[in-house]
Amino acid sequence: MEKDSKIYVAGHRGLVGSAIVRKLKEKGFTNIIGKTHSELDLRDSVAVEEFFKTERPEYVFLAAAKVGGILANSTYPADFIYENLQIQNNVIGMAKKYEVKKLMFLGSSCIYPKLCPQPIKEEYLLSGYLEETNEAYALAKIAGLKMCEFFNKQYGTNFISVMPTNLYGPHDNFHPKNSHVMPALIRRFHEAKVNNAPEVVVWGSGAPLREFLYSEDMADACIYLMENYEGNDFINIGTGKEISIKGLAELIKEIVGYEGKIVWDTTKPDGTPRKLLDVSRLGKAGWTYKTELKDGIKKAYKWYLENYIDS
């Protein structure tokens, strides 16, 4: 990518997209396009084609998606598969039609089988059953990844896919019901602290193990791979380190300064027991993470206090 190349970041206001935009600007890229949902509904094929026909982006980061935690995925599975397939089909299809030089599709580590060998290598994709609670979202993401692969094979496009681990950071979704575990816990512990609540109830047993990557690091990895990698082998992006949900809750409790107790509601689902990505392919490509978990959570909490506190 040249510094003045026209770069379209789909989902530029989201957790990943906004981080990619900030990192691109930091690296000196000057011609970045972003459209809000009200300006461009990516589910609308006519609108998406008109955008590509008019703007002619040279590079595309496809970071737009309908996302949510266990509750949202379990409650709205039809919405998750339908809307994500629409977004992907429209953007990838128009990127091919209007000869985008390179596209990056951002998937999710939930595409892997529920009981995958650990750490999870890229070749484990489609080797077993998916986690039931986010199956609809995972199927959509698998379809997007495969679409990039098959477009490359049939049409000679240069579309690459990356699979990020659990992400967190500025512009995360802190909604009390529809957010992922990290922002949900940050909000819950903060509100409990402010309200002097004696306890915070957390879903599950606390036993599952999870890997977390700070969104700024994710953005750096995406831009690095966009400039230094091409091929049909998709790449995991993560830290290669994990923490239990119990350990995460205790760490967030400490950072927020909440002094009550944590109660585990074991009637609620745990989700996948363990999910750690093998990042050796990423390491061989020449990239490694920079932000340790405790430092990243401090930054995320600071952003929440400054930007989300009255939401």
Rank of each mutant, 00 (worst) to 15 (best):
K3C: 09
K114S: 14
I92P: 01
E216A: 13
V201Q: 12
M218T: 04
C110A: 13
L42K: 04
Y82Q: 13
P183Y: 01
M104G: 00
L293S: 06
E242Y: 06
K268F: 01
L15Q: 07
E254L: 10
A95K: 04
V202T: 05
A219C: 09
N152L: 08
D310S: 15
L225N: 05
V263S: 10
V91M: 08
S179N: 05
A78S: 14
L125Q: 10
I120Y: 08
L167P: 00
P273D: 05
Q88E: 13
V201R: 13
M163E: 08
K193P: 03
E49Q: 14
I81Q: 04
E122S: 09
M182I: 15
S109D: 14
A63W: 04
T157W: 01
C222Y: 04
I70E: 03
V16D: 02
A10P: 04
D44M: 04
K290C: 02
F212V: 04
L62I: 06
I255S: 03
L293P: 04
A95I: 02
K294Y: 11
I262S: 10
E254C: 07
S127L: 12
Y168W: 09
S311Y: 13
R210D: 01
E292H: 08
G231Q: 10
D295K: 15
V48M: 09
V263D: 03
G69R: 05
G17Y: 04
L167I: 11
L251Y: 00
T272Y: 00
T165P: 08
G238M: 05
S215G: 07
D265S: 06
K53F: 10
K101A: 10
D217T: 04
T30D: 02
I33M: 14
N134Q: 13
R43F: 00
V181T: 12
I32H: 05
L251W: 03
L225I: 08
D220C: 10
A65R: 00
V48Y: 02
L103V: 13
G169C: 08
L145F: 08
A192D: 07
L276S: 03
Y304D: 07
L126P: 00
D233T: 14
F105P: 02
R274K: 15
E250W: 01
R210N: 01
K294N: 13
K246S: 13
G11P: 00
N158T: 12
F151V: 12
I111W: 01
M94G: 01
V201Y: 02
D270Q: 08
S244Y: 02
V279F: 03
A207Q: 14
K96G: 03
R187E: 01
L62H: 11
K96Q: 12
I142R: 12
Y129A: 14
A136L: 06
F105I: 06
L167D: 00
S38G: 01
H180Y: 08
E250G: 11
